[in-house]
Design a protein around this nucleic acid. Structure first.
Lengths: 128, 128
DNA sequence: GTCACGTGTCAGATTCTTCTTACACCCCAA
DNA sequence: TTGGGGTGTAAGAAGAATCTGACACGTGAC
């Protein structure tokens, strides 16, 4: 078995810092229950909208959630977010692998090839 | 299969913040190659000893490394560190599970029952 | 004694993250 | 035109994390 490619050091680091925050864990958890738009989600989890906006940015930059700006039937622009089906494993080996490709400077943009990979990975991760 | 219990929210959060740092990723990677004592490790990865000390504290608090103070044959007290065989999975489901048990306040000490669990988990994680 | 090498810790500077507040824009309905 | 609800973002305060430099202690070898 095992078809999960080991992530890039920078990629893994971004995921870890993105998930290493109680608010963002809750946000991911909330979005895992179903897509939602920013203002509503902010009300539901009791957080100021600009703050939630910032956290969502971080999560999206790490490839953990995806946002799409949609026009509601009543003409309002609403930004919906949903979790992308990510799957990462954390073991000493994988950390060792990843640390090899760590570029001490922080990358600005994320390669847009990431989502496709996540889709494939998530299949075998239907954990109990 | 699957015997990996879902971690506590606080536990997972501690692991994520501990690993969410380039230096600490490298430290874990270095220790995965073999145990080492603080001063030597500091020289090898080019980091000031007090700083390394701090990072090791964080990693140990998260249960990712274990340190033991040993007396060398020449009488010097040396603190050896090694990685504990941790194994965590990161998926939306697991995050959702964990977020349920998040106690917004940060816990001070870690339950000492953690190591035993890690030992058992790591068996099935011989990845790639 | 002095030096080399190990341990630990503290104070303070610096930098990063987080959070609030306030602003600007858009569209529809009353 | 005013109000409600959506969007985004920027400035600055507050707090947390990071890092350096200096100190203190212990032991064995010269």
């Amino acid at each position: 078995m095992s078809a999960i490619e080991t992530p890039t050091g920078d990629e893994l680091l971004k995921v870890l810092t993105a998930l290493g925050n109680p608010h963002r864990l809750r946000i991911v958890a909330a979005l895992a229950q179903g897509r939602n738009y920013v203002s509503r989600l902010a009300r539901e989890i009791g957080m100021s909208r600009p703050l939630l906006h910032m956290h969502l940015q971080r999560l999206e930059a790490a490839g953990l959630v995806v946002g799409t700006l949609e026009l509601s039937d009543s003409g309002k622009a609403m930004k919906f977010f949903e979790v992308s089906p990510f799957a990462y494993a954390l073991t000493p080996q994988i950390v060792t692998e990843a640390a090899r490709t760590l570029t001490d400077q922080q990358p600005d943009e994320k390669a847009p090839s990431e989502r496709a990979r996540n889709e494939k990975e998530s299949a075998q991760w239907t954990s109990s």
